[in-house]
Design a protein around this nucleic acid. Structure first.
Length: 437
RNA sequence: GCGGAUGUAGCUCAGUAGGUUAGAGCGCUGGAUUGUGGCUCCGGAGGCCGUGGGUUCAAAUCCCAUCAUUCGCCCCA
């Protein structure tokens, strides 16, 4: 039985062209996060399993986490998400860090589940978090970072929409307005989360099942459904509209409008799966009809740092997967043609490998990335190999070139050739490389 | 964990009333053309038809199982 060449289920091999794409995405992420003052950090891929038991739903930890026992009998998990790790790091140095603390990371995360479009077992996720800011300015800033990333990729506002809601507002609605108890509210939260995926009738039936008979008789389901249809804060009943959480949402949306983010909207159905969110929550949706789904999400989670036994730190963060990012960029045709980092492919003509070393090393010492074919094949075969690799320039070195120290450099994209000195060639390929960036 | 679809050459796919030695395009490779790619022409390599079992004189083709890929559900970090 031959060994399989496939990568592990739900995980990807990155050949050079795949890695180039990933690096391109990461570079944009880094550039924009750093533009807002966020600093990169990192941590081990393994964490103690209990880090994920404290919060998160039961099923996620028990069924969707890679977990094992190490040789010392410790229960260990491959990180399924980044938020607990960064919270742990902040808690560890709670007193000495300077706030507001702005951090970002691009960890790879693992979750054990059936792979499907946009969701794999291993993915990389940009996490951007701000610690130590109570007010909605933190949310506004993070949404600007996310919006800035999309703009940096060349996206326009018609390609995506930023949906915003507030857990506090939903709590107000469920506890104060609908007078539900804790268990009812929790069940309803999960139900609203998938409201857009199930038929109206099923939703009504499940909602009815949550309410007590007296509430049902009072028309709670219809009342709820009416609320969930509302698309603008202004249309909420006055009792809700004047609540503090609703006012905060309004201020946030106003602030975003000031920042020229015109595609941010109130969406009462945005709940986010995790229980640890405590305030504003948001998701960005791809408006591509072929891929109409949430591509990232985040929100305020003020309680997590406090779980480590230190004073709580107000926190807002978001996570953005590389797979959903890539799906978005492909769907809107926003990916540039990416070429290898090799600037020049040297084609040797005749038996000149040894004497050509001097000029080849000279090119490298001047900063050019140079690959040498080294097979001794006929020139046409060597040119084909260079073109197939996507390398921009081929350089020919033979007896004639070495005699007058003028080398033929061919632009493989246009097919045009010129003869230049080594120094001039380096300057040409460097110019091209900088134009490309 | 549940359901659907699909597994034939490196890739995309033809090929069933079951019947010689399983095909095409692209790609790869050699030559025409031993100092210059993409076009053209001529040649070549490459397949236990996903795997195992069953039915049959005979299976890529029919049946069962299994594995893999993929889409969706559950769940969503």
């Amino acid at each position: 039985m031959a060994l399989s060449t496939q990568p592990y289920k739900g995980a990807r091999d990155f050949y050079p062209e795949d890695k180039r794409l990933q690096k391109y995405i990461f570079n944009v992420w880094r550039k924009v996060a750093e533009r807002y003052g966020y600093e990169e950090h990192d941590a081990p891929i393994l964490e103690p399993l209990e880090l994920y038991l404290a919060k998160s739903g039961e099923e996620i930890v028990s069924e969707q986490t890679y977990a094992f026992e190490d040789r010392g009998g410790r229960k260990v998990a491959i990180r399924p998400e980044w938020t607990p790790t960064v919270s742990r790091m902040v808690a560890a140095r709670r007193q000495e860090l300077a706030y507001p603390l702005r951090l970002y990371a691009i960890p790879n995360l693992w979750r054990y589940e059936r792979p499907q479009r946009g969701r794999l077992r291993e993915h990389w996720q940009l996490n951007v978090d701000i610690f130590g800011v109570d007010g909605f300015m933190a949310e506004a800033e993070l949404i600007q970072v996310a919006d800035g990333i999309l703009k940096e990729f060349g996206a326009t506002h018609d390609m995506y929409a930023i949906h915003i809601n507030s857990r506090k507002l939903m709590d107000f609605i469920m506890f104060d307005y609908l007078a539900l108890d804790g268990v009812q509210a929790h069940t309803l939260t999960k139900l609203i989360d998938r409201m857009n995926k199930i038929p109206r009738e099923s939703f009504m039936a499940e909602a009815d099942a949550i309410f007590a008979p007296s509430q049902r008789d009072a028309g709670a389901s219809n009342k709820l459904l009416g609320l969930l249809k509302i698309k603008q804060l202004e249309h909420l009943p006055e009792a809700i509209r004047l609540s503090a959480p609703a006012q905060e949402l309004k201020q946030l949306l106003d602030m975003l409008r000031e920042a020229r983010i015109t595609n941010a909207i109130f969406d009462i159905t945005i709940m986010r799966g995790f229980d640890y969110y405590t305030g504003i929550v948001f998701e960005i949706f791809d408006k591509n009809p072929e891929n109409n789904r949430s591509m990232m999400g985040g929100g305020r989670y003020d309680g997590l740092v406090g779980l480590f036994g230190v004073e709580p730190v107000p926190t807002v963060g978001f996570g953005w997967g590389d797979v959903t990012m890539q799906n978005f960029l492909e769907g809107h045709d926003l990916l540039p043609t990416l070429r290898p980092d090799t600037d020049v492919y040297v084609i040797l003509i005749g038996d000149v490998y040894a004497p050509a070393q001097r000029v080849i090393q000279e090119l490298r010492s001047m900063g050019a990335n140079v690959a040498v074919d080294a097979t001794g094949r006929k020139p046409d075969k060597q040119i084909k190999a260079a073109a197939k690799k996507g390398i921009h320039y081929a350089m020919f070195i033979g007896e004639r070139e070495m005699a007058d120290e003028q080398y033929e450099i061919r632009n493989l994209l246009t097919g045009t050739s010129e003869r230049h000195s080594a120094a001039r060639i380096v300057s040409i390929v460097k110019d091209y490389r900088e134009d490309d960036d």
